[in-house]
Every structure is written in structure tokens, then in C-alpha cells.
Simulated assay, not measured.
Amino acid sequence: MPYYYVNNNPTLNPGYHHEVHTEEHANELNILSKKYLGFYSNCFDAVDKAKETYSDADGCKTCCSLCHKG
């Protein structure tokens, strides 16, 4: 089960929304402005948590592909 984060800056991705990433991928992308969401068994729960803050939250196409809506 990975740790999840949401990017606080929506302009850093092609869809201009707040993307949810695993901790490993957020670090690979060097995302500095991010909010810790928690330790989840799946990306769906992490995206739901992110939507409490950002209604436009979406899963990252690379690390949360099952939750990526585009």
C-alpha cells in the first residue's frame, strides 16, 4: 500500500487539474507543493480524499492509471 499525495499546483499537468500521485512518483517528478493524503490500498480512496480539498482531483495517468479520468 503506497502513500498518496495531491499536487497543489494544477498547472503542472496537461489536464490542469489537481493530480493524485504515489509518494514515489511525486518524488520522481520533484513536486514540491503537495498535500499528504494518507496510506491507502488503492488510488480510488486517495482520489476521494483529495476531492475533499480539490473537487477537480484526478489520478495521475502514470502512477494511478486506474483512477485517471483525463
Rank of each mutant, 00 (worst) to 15 (best):
21 H>L: 10
36 Y>W: 15
5 Y>S: 00
5 Y>R: 00
25 H>Y: 15
38 G>F: 06
5 Y>E: 08
54 Y>T: 09
37 L>V: 06
5 Y>K: 07
39 F>N: 14
40 Y>E: 05
60 C>H: 08
64 C>G: 03
46 A>H: 00
66 L>D: 14
20 V>Q: 04
68 H>W: 13
50 A>E: 06
46 A>L: 06
64 C>F: 02
43 C>L: 04
10 P>F: 04
61 K>Q: 14
8 N>E: 15
53 T>Q: 06
68 H>C: 10
42 N>M: 12
15 G>W: 08
3 Y>G: 06
3 Y>C: 10
57 A>Q: 11
35 K>W: 03
28 E>V: 00
62 T>V: 15
19 E>G: 02
48 D>E: 08
20 V>S: 03
18 H>N: 02
23 E>T: 02
49 K>Q: 07
53 T>R: 02
40 Y>G: 04
31 I>S: 00
16 Y>Q: 14
20 V>E: 05
4 Y>E: 00
5 Y>A: 03
18 H>G: 00
53 T>L: 09
45 D>M: 13
63 C>A: 00
27 N>C: 11
27 N>S: 14
13 N>Q: 09
55 S>I: 01
13 N>T: 01
53 T>D: 04
9 N>G: 04
42 N>F: 12
2 P>H: 07
31 I>Y: 00
1 M>I: 12
15 G>V: 11
43 C>F: 06
61 K>Y: 15
33 S>Q: 11
1 M>H: 12
8 N>P: 10
53 T>A: 05
40 Y>M: 11
4 Y>G: 09
33 S>E: 11
13 N>C: 05
26 A>D: 00
38 G>H: 08
66 L>P: 08
28 E>T: 05
42 N>T: 13
4 Y>T: 10
70 G>T: 10
19 E>A: 10
